[in-house]
Design a protein around this nucleic acid. Structure first.
Lengths: 328, 328
DNA sequence: TCTATCTATGAAAACGGTTTCATGATTTCG
DNA sequence: CGAAATCATGAAACCGTTTTCATAGATAGA
């Protein structure tokens, strides 16, 4: 591999001048510039990025944390983030925490060892106090997830509102017996806020939330199937169910079909996210503006890296949209 | 940030000895080792990865190319690759080519500039001759995609066989009027081989493939919907359709339902991949062992980086499985 | 015309590690 | 007991850039 030294020699100039050409510094005559360009071309030279990183103390790489990339919500997020980063000359390192606290902490070392310039968390597994110390080593941002203690830029949706909209919709459809079904991540405000929004809608309508219709630990299609069976076994059943994701909703519906239940007449189901599958099967759902979120977060991150902005709380709140289909 | 020099000073030793401790070299007394450990602890020291990369000439990072991460086939692939890489201490850089030749070439520079130790291609947009020169800069591997000219390790499935199995299944169900529907990437053998397999099954059964039932450019759910409408408009219609992905199949089915067609009686549909959505909607499909492929590819890649194996053709062929559901 | 500023270039330092080489102490072995 | 091998450590070179500093010529302003 040719080095900058080789180029300098061939061009009959110093390393410094070659470097100036590469980095588009002023004060290089056109003639020398041409000499350097030709030499680079001839040697098929490209600057070594490790050396560059070391000297410039920056990596042009950003880490994005997701629980699992196979979750369509997160893969959509990563898609837009990756494309936007690429447009601005940044690489994206994918960190899958697999819902594991340890894995999350492991990956945080990336920032400390200067393998990335900054990181974007789309979910949090640990208490914020475990994450905060890493803020010394580079910018950290939240996207989707949010946290009261975190003094960092945050692009998010008001999940209270999202759940409220969904639950209200069910109430407007005439339901009063509405179950609630979600994942439960204690370090995450997303889950608790949704429950708050759900209760708010119920209470406004004079309905008392029932403990036995509070179903947790549901993330996947399979979890949805299990949830359906739990509901089917109840003596006193709900007529509608609010879910925390389209996958779970799809699982419930699928299993309901297996048991010859009619959706929405025997059970109305509302999903969350508006993933492609929701349109496919006709699921009413609450759309999250994923593209918008992902792009804004990445934009903010790159800006704060490039302008070395001090980290501070800055909230960007986006809006939900109810998408009515035939499951409600 | 503390450097190795700071640690050395605090421990009263040389940089060399500190480096030895970090890298678990032999020939360091337990006492000095302890001194170094304490100093590192006290200074909250971690080695700077850029410096390390520069000196060791390796990055412990691998690039994975996919067309789009939102395609569930590829997100599953990336999930297992990412997890396996992480287990072995490697990072994964995600490169989305967006089906663009330019974008693919852009990303290839990553290898040349030594930002990654190697790269795994799950699809190819350019002619192999455009990619080959980059083999000088580090190991390249194929996973899923394959190419006759590429003298590189390849983990793949025999797509002729996959399409053959699917088409045979349709024939065994009594169909003789079978349409073919897929994407069309000319640089990829996946597409052409599938068509070969399809024709092989037809010809064995004495059926002549029909040009007007050869439908291309189908990748997404929306494409599937379009394809259905194309079929519906035909005067002389097929009774079954072979598709190149579960998404496309799902789109066809969805649109068929909209038009009150009965699947499989009016139109039998077979998908490809066996993604979660296939189980959800009851789609017959051809399962690809994605986890297995991804893991084997990543394993091969890391081994060849660590043992500096010379790049050569080495084919690992895995098998398909037909999953029968109610769409056929 | 003289000085201040701007332009153009290169030598050397710096980034923060790892590896090579040299050296002395200690152990092993014939 | 002497030579060879092994153990333990540090100085210095090295990885390949960018940045700082120094220098000199050209230009502008007074």
């Amino acid at each position: 591999m040719a080095t900058i030294q080789d180029v300098a020699k061939l061009a009959g100039l110093s390393r410094t001048t070659v470097s100036r050409v590469i980095n588009r510094h002023p004060y290089v005559t056109d003639e020398k510039k041409r000499l350097v360009m030709n030499a680079m071309e001839e040697l098929n030279y490209v600057p070594n990025s490790s050396a560059r990183r070391l000297r410039k103390q920056q990596t042009e790489t950003i880490a994005v944390y997701v629980p699992r990339i196979t979750n369509p919500f997160f893969s959509q997020m990563v898609e837009v983030m990756g494309n936007y980063a690429s447009d601005r000359g940044y690489q994206l390192i994918l960190c899958q925490t697999s819902y594991s606290r340890n894995q999350e902490i492991n990956y945080l070392e990336l920032l400390k060892t200067k393998q990335v310039d900054g990181l974007i968390l789309t979910s949090i597994e640990n208490e914020w106090s475990s994450i905060e110390p890493y803020m010394n080593y580079g910018p950290i941002m939240l996207c989707n997830e949010y946290n009261d203690q975190a003094q960092v830029p945050t692009v998010y949706l008001d999940q209270i509102e999202g759940a409220y909209i969904g639950t209200r919709h069910l109430i407007e459809q005439g339901h009063t017996r509405i179950a609630y079904c979600s994942g439960d991540n204690h370090a995450s405000r997303v889950a608790s806020d949704r429950y708050t929004g759900y209760k708010k809608a119920l209470e406004e309508a004079g309905i008392v939330p029932r403990e036995d219709w509070f179903l947790t630990n549901a993330y996947s299609i399979d979890d949805g199937k299990r949830v359906f069976n739990d509901i089917a076994k109840m003596n006193d059943r709900p007529t509608a169910v609010f879910t925390g994701s389209d996958e779970v909703a799809a699982g419930i519906w699928k299993e309901a079909l297996n048991h010859k239940w009619d959706v929405p007449n025997h059970l109305a189901i509302i999903g969350f996210d508006d993933q492609p599958v929701a349109d496919l099967i006709g699921l009413t759902t609450i759309r999250q503006p994923i593209e918008n979120m992902g792009q804004q977060a990445m934009e903010l991150m790159i800006d704060s890296i490039q302008h070395k902005l001090p980290s501070k709380k800055k909230e960007i709140k986006l809006d939900f949209e109810l998408v009515k289909r035939r499951s409600t």
